[in-house]
């Protein structure tokens, strides 16, 4: 199965990590640009118009999430994948809610990262076990009066999918276990991402700030 070529911009201030990333990515991922600060990244992404931006959550001049809305107005097709090594829950959730389509940790294997980039470029969402665990925790208790149950609760299937991701299963394993297609798993994850971005329940970002364990 040949995958289409994806153009990627790396926004990260750790030169060693960026160099390692470039070396590890397969040939169907082309790194077209690099930036080390939010200030440099915004015009670069606007001019290059890549498929996917790999965005470090912590940049020297601003939070990574500040890049997303600045680009989104002009280049709505550019998709963002958040990367981090050891950030607080608050920063990760702020980045997701700013519009990133997924979150992975920097310890991810290059092959898995390449798969995540393709998935994001196709418009799907990518959840690490950490993010799935967060969703399960944040959406677990049922609020007495949910303002919007459509957004504030997970369906049974979404809950199952999140639980399996948190336990470390890959999409294809999840599809096999639940007897559904990988495509359906992706749909569930995308729906959960939408809820994560739009739901107001528990004021998620503040709630995340009080969560100290990552």
């Amino acid at each position: 199965m040949s995958r289409p070529l994806r153009q990627v911009v790396l926004v990260d201030d750790h030169a060693i990590f960026v160099a390692g990333l470039r070396a590890g990515l397969p040939p169907d991922i082309e790194v077209v640009g690099e930036a080390a600060t939010a200030e440099d990244a915004i015009p670069l992404i606007r001019s290059l118009d890549p498929d996917v931006v790999l965005l470090d959550i912590h940049l020297p001049d601003a939070g990574g999430f500040s890049v997303i809305p600045a680009v989104h107005a002009e280049r709505p097709a550019v998709r963002f994948l958040a990367l981090s090594v050891s950030d607080s829950a608050e920063d990760v959730i702020a980045t997701i809610r700013a519009g990133a389509r997924g979150y992975v940790t920097k310890s991810i294997a290059p092959a898995d990262l390449a798969a995540a980039i393709h998935r994001i470029a196709d418009g799907d969402a990518v959840f690490s076990p950490w993010l799935a665990g967060f969703v399960l925790d944040a959406f677990s208790d049922r609020p007495e009066a949910s303002s919007d149950p459509e957004l504030d609760l997970l369906t049974g299937r979404e809950h199952e999918v999140m639980l399996l991701i948190a336990r470390g299963y890959l999409y294809k394993d999840i599809a096999a276990r639940l007897h559904i297609s990988v495509r359906t798993v992706e749909t569930h994850v995308s729906n959960v991402l939408r809820k994560l971005q739009l739901s107001n329940r528990n004021e998620l970002t503040h709630w995340a700030a009080r969560r100290r364990i990552i």
Partner: peptide
């Protein structure tokens, strides 16, 4: 060891 825990 990939440890995921959100509550304590």
């Amino acid at each position: 060891v990939e440890l995921v825990q959100h509550r304590d």
